[in-house]
Simulated assay, not measured.
Amino acid sequence: GVGCTLDIDTAIGDGGQLGHSSSLQRGQSIPDGEHWHGSPAVPTTADYCKVRNVNPPRIRRFLYEAVQLIGLFAIITPLPLLFHSYWENVGDDYQETIGIVAIGTTVTLFGYIAVAFLAATLAIWDRALNYYTEWAEIALFVAVLLTSAITIPFYIFVERASLGFRKLKPQMTTIYDVTFWRHERHWKLADSPIVRLFAGTPFRPMILRMLGVKVGKRVYDGGANLTERSLVEIGDDVTLNEGCVIQAHSLAEGAFKSDFIRIGDGCTLGPSAFVHYGVVMGKGSMVDADSFVMKGEELEPNSIWRGNPAKLHRFVEPVSEGSGASS
């Protein structure tokens, strides 16, 4: 899983699974086929891979690897060269598949090229530096405003365009399926600088709304990481502390699954808390710092969850308006 730690003198047997943010301490070992989770890790009945790994045809595995290479060398590596050696030994099924891959890859390439055109902002900063001796910090401030006015709408457009201006839907598939390839293309184009801007300010929820997150009123976001933004729903008066992760997908053993995450009104995620896909947080519930909420958990209203994996710690009495007023 993500964020796992293996100490010296540890081992994982064939088919073993170690959950997210878990750790094997010195001398621990996972027997063949067992599933462990926690810090220190202990045996669990949870299965982190609902979709079993498949053995795809050689050509399909090759196509997937080719798409990965194109992601790394988007413009340098031309697509025809990658498939030339296979071209004469395949049938109609391959040509149909390669057509789909070519379309997706072309869209990705144009996305990278379009991002490169943001170099036009250098012209703004060139002017700002030229006028710095006359306008001093005012020239830099104006340059920041103009750059933001160009880049923020552009990156929002790129991310929404990567989804065809639609929203993500829950998926259960393998990494060799075209559906996952499209999702991975979205990841690459959605990893933009604006997702880290304005943490802890009222502008942060505004950015999230424009990126497709359903966000309520009076939300504080101190720097949360949302991997699938259109699969997340955040209610009113929610607090997202620094470093918390809201991950609406799982990727393990060649299997990919995604689902909604719903955070109710008045909920709180502590620093570095991790919420997995399929989680529903009831009104006023709280996830403590460094806690990991497993996929599919339903947190009752006004409950506090703590630990890795997170378990119900206790309930709290909600504070009503005027309860703190003295008689």
Rank of each mutant, 00 (worst) to 15 (best):
G3P: 02
T5Y: 12
L6R: 05
L6T: 04
D7V: 00
I8T: 10
D9G: 03
I12A: 11
S22Y: 12
Q25S: 06
G27D: 02
Q28D: 12
I30F: 08
D32F: 08
W36T: 00
G38E: 06
A41V: 04
P43R: 14
P43T: 05
T44W: 09
V54S: 13
P57W: 04
I59V: 11
R61D: 12
Y64D: 03
Q68S: 10
G71N: 13
F73G: 09
A74L: 05
I75R: 07
P78N: 10
L79H: 11
P80N: 08
P80M: 06
L82D: 07
S85R: 12
Y86C: 07
Y86F: 11
W87M: 10
E88I: 12
N89E: 12
E96K: 14
T97F: 10
I98R: 02
I98K: 09
I100M: 08
L109D: 04
F110L: 15
F110W: 15
A114E: 06
A120I: 15
I124Y: 03
T133H: 13
E134T: 14
A136H: 14
A139L: 09
V142S: 09
T147Y: 07
I150W: 14
T151Q: 15
F154Y: 10
Y155K: 03
E159H: 01
R166G: 14
K167G: 07
K169I: 12
Q171P: 01
Q171I: 14
T173E: 07
T174D: 09
I175F: 05
Y176F: 15
D177C: 10
V178G: 00
T179D: 15
F180R: 01
R182V: 00
R185K: 13
K188G: 01
K188T: 05
K188F: 10
D191H: 13
P193V: 09
T201A: 12
R204F: 03
P205L: 06
G212Y: 00
K217T: 13
V219I: 13
G222V: 11
N225G: 07
E228I: 04
R229A: 12
R229W: 00
L231N: 10
L231V: 06
V232T: 02
D236R: 05
V238R: 02
T239C: 06
E242R: 10
G243N: 08
C244R: 01
I246M: 04
A248T: 11
H249R: 03
H249G: 05
H249A: 11
F256V: 00
F256K: 04
F256W: 06
S258M: 01
S258H: 02
D265P: 05
F274W: 15
F274I: 07
G282Q: 10
K283L: 00
S285L: 07
S285R: 06
D288E: 09
D290G: 01
S291T: 04
S291H: 05
G296W: 01
L299A: 07
E300G: 07
P301M: 02
S303C: 11
I304Q: 02
W305Q: 06
N308H: 02
N308A: 10
P309F: 10
A310L: 08
V316F: 02
P318R: 07
E321D: 13
G322Y: 02
S323Y: 11
S326V: 14
